[in-house]
Nucleic acid binder design. Structure first.
Lengths: 173, 173
DNA sequence: CACCTATAGTTAGCCTCCTAATCACCTGGA
DNA sequence: TCCAGGTGATTAGGAGGCTAACTATAGGTG
């Protein structure tokens, strides 16, 4: 009856979902609620694991993503485009660039086209950092999903995409 | 060939994964890397959507999870047990309880068994907050996963659990 | 030409999370 | 008995995210 509690991971159980719903006499499907809760728990767990992973290379998830985005676009891009590509606010990009600039991985240059604008450029040192970490980084990424077959991964991508669409149910007015 | 860029969401594409790997001549499977990257993007997107959701009720994800954990355990629990149940550090629990206590949703009582210890108790106001938000909260949670059939949700739970196991590949030494 | 609004970037303040250091108290062994 | 080491909780300091407010420039319109 009382299943294991997954102490430490925070992974919720079906029993917990059932208890929560029955407490208020709600008719929602406990399994649906469980999927949502598990996905949230997995997301936060992955967030932490990702930070630990990137910390090996002196980076954070956000900083890595910014560097990778730059590399994928010829080594330079204005902050506002970085913000929309990464899905974060411009203020966050300012903070990330501050840190990366301090470490010499990136530099700011005034825009030649727009007097208000900047361009963030990947320095040789930034490119080198990406080069150095690539083998281990991609090996670990691949290992993470190694428990799934190719078919399962394809299926998972489809299911995940539909759940991502569903996330608007949390934010819609 | 060039697929849509999902501008704004930060969702990576298979082409991006391929470019990254080929840039350094690595032999990792682009699809595997894509799954890992998409999962990370989905996790961070869900994190933000969750914060927006809980903000409706004057809470955050962390605060809600703490309240729910208390409710699920008879309304009281010491901070260190909350920390391990929620999968966060004790320092984080201190901060969450500080905020919840300020709002009157929770209170600290000295432990009767351990002179060092505390017990965090759910106040009537805290229980009321949970009661008030329950209908909308669970309705939205259910709506989020509504795009999947029951069978698909079961399958997803299995795949997700295996990916969560695989996350140790990021943190292992 | 002058103004008005929109946009680029930064700043300030808040929240969550972390680690490391500190303090208080518990507990077991010499 | 008393002391050493372990454990509970807080504090201090850092990072990344957010919103809102501010500055400066761009651009369209009267």
């Amino acid at each position: 009856m009382a299943q294991q509690h997954e102490a430490g991971t925070g992974a919720p159980t079906l029993d917990q979902a059932r208890r929560q719903l029955s407490r208020y006499g709600l008719s929602a499907d406990p399994q649906a609620v469980l999927v949502a809760a598990r996905l949230m728990a997995a997301g936060s767990r992955l967030g932490q694991a990702g930070e630990a992973h990137f910390a090996r290379f002196g980076l954070s998830t956000g900083r890595y993503r910014l560097l990778a985005e730059l590399e994928d676009h010829g080594g330079e891009k204005p902050p506002s485009q970085l913000a929309s590509a990464l899905g974060v606010s411009r203020a966050t990009v300012t903070g990330l660039v501050d840190g990366l600039e301090r470490d010499g991985l990136v530099a700011r240059r005034p825009s030649t086209e727009d007097g208000r604008g900047n361009v963030v450029v990947l320095t040789p040192r930034g490119a080198q950092r990406l080069r150095d970490m690539a083998p281990e980084h991609f090996q670990r990424m691949q290992a993470m999903v190694g428990g799934l077959s190719v078919e399962e991964r394809t299926l998972f991508l489809d299911l995940l995409a539909r759940l991502v669409e569903g996330m608007s149910a949390l934010t819609d007015d």
